[in-house]
């Protein structure tokens, strides 16, 4: 046995809580978990017990989660009620994160970005901004912007001067029809509704993106 157990099992009034160590390697944790379940076979072979798994600060990918569930399922009487980790709740605590960049994206240049981007400058024809989140261009958007590159169809594209060559959100591609044309002093944004690219004035952005909504008091 290791000096410090990687898996701690606690009994609560309506089931068991498995606390998994979040510092060590995940495969070690699984190994330890498997060993524990095997060594205390009698304890886990009674009536159905609800199980909550707590991962601590560790964030797991789907395969890791599946492996974990597989091990627990080997015991017929363990019913997994939840798998929680602290990391999941963290981004929500931070709120809407945005990074600000300045410059000009010229023809042939590609700006790749993770997360939400506030770009102060122009995107020229032939230039491309790709971002996993929202893209806000404070300047003239004459080139192409691809928001939600990894498939986030809720992403939006906003620009002070909205004259793009092409827009992409997740896997929806749209060429600006003529009627988009640059209207006077109007800031616009693009979003996806029912698989179609839609354009609206920026004052209506809060209607589709509640998460960006700001509380203004009374």
């Amino acid at each position: 046995m290791t000096a410090k157990s990687l898996v701690t099992i606690k009994g609560v009034k309506d089931g068991l809580v498995f606390l998994l160590d979040d510092k060590s390697d995940f495969s070690d944790v699984l190994h330890d978990l498997r060993a524990k379940l095997e060594h205390t076979s009698q304890f886990f072979s009674g009536p159905i017990v609800y199980v909550d798994v707590k991962l601590g600060a560790r964030s797991v990918v789907d395969e890791q989660k599946t492996a974990l569930v597989e091990i627990l399922r080997q015991r017929g009487n363990l019913l997994i009620r939840s798998i929680q980790c602290d990391a999941e709740s963290k981004p929500q605590e931070k709120g809407y994160q945005v990074q600000t960049l300045t410059g000009i994206v010229r023809s042939g240049q590609v700006l790749r970005h993770e997360g939400n981007l506030l770009f102060l400058g122009d995107v020229n024809p032939g230039g491309l901004i790709e971002s996993t989140g929202d893209v806000v261009v404070c300047g003239a958007l004459r080139g192409t912007v691809h928001a939600g590159v990894n498939g986030d169809a809720n992403a939006v594209i906003v620009a002070s001067l909205f004259a793009p060559t092409q827009l992409r959100i997740a896997d929806v591609i749209s060429r600006p029809p003529d009627e988009w044309g640059v209207k006077q002093a109007q800031m616009e944004y693009a979003y996806v509704r029912e698989g179609q690219m839609q354009i609206d004035k920026v004052a209506h952005l809060h209607r589709i993106r509640q998460d960006l909504n700001m509380f203004k008091g009374v």
Binding site: I104, R106, S107, G108, Q109, N124, P125, G126, G127
Partner: peptide
């Protein structure tokens, strides 16, 4: 002309 301006823009980027 648009084509020439487009290429000039590319060049400006490369010069930068």
């Amino acid at each position: 002309e648009n084509a020439a301006v487009r290429d000039a823009d590319r060049i400006v980027g490369l010069l930068e």
